[in-house]
Amino acid sequence: MSLTIALYGITRDIVGAATIELPAPAPTTVGELLAEMRRQYPALGELRSCAVAVNQEYAPTDQPLHPVDEIALIPPVAGG
């Protein structure tokens, strides 16, 4: 299975695109996804934090990922 990851803020600048496709065999958990993204884009590891959202909710590292999920990287937010 492959996964599509949406990118916002500084993560979009680091990757250079608004979405990235991870082809099969794609990471199966949030933790694996973060590790894979940091491997491909080391600058992600320099951020204050980088969370993963699954279906618009903050996801713990052991949460499984599915191709139908809406997945996004969430760099430090700064609203308000």
Binding site: A53, V77, A78
Partner: peptide
């Protein structure tokens, strides 16, 4: 509400200065 919004709501701020721009709070 405003304090918690700042911690969890997925909005990002990029400041523009005379000599460049920066994503606020992105780096330690």
């Amino acid at each position: 509400i405003i304090d918690t919004l700042k911690q969890v709501v997925t909005i990002w701020k990029r400041e523009e200065y005379e000599d460049g721009t920066e994503w606020v709070a992105a780096h330690p």
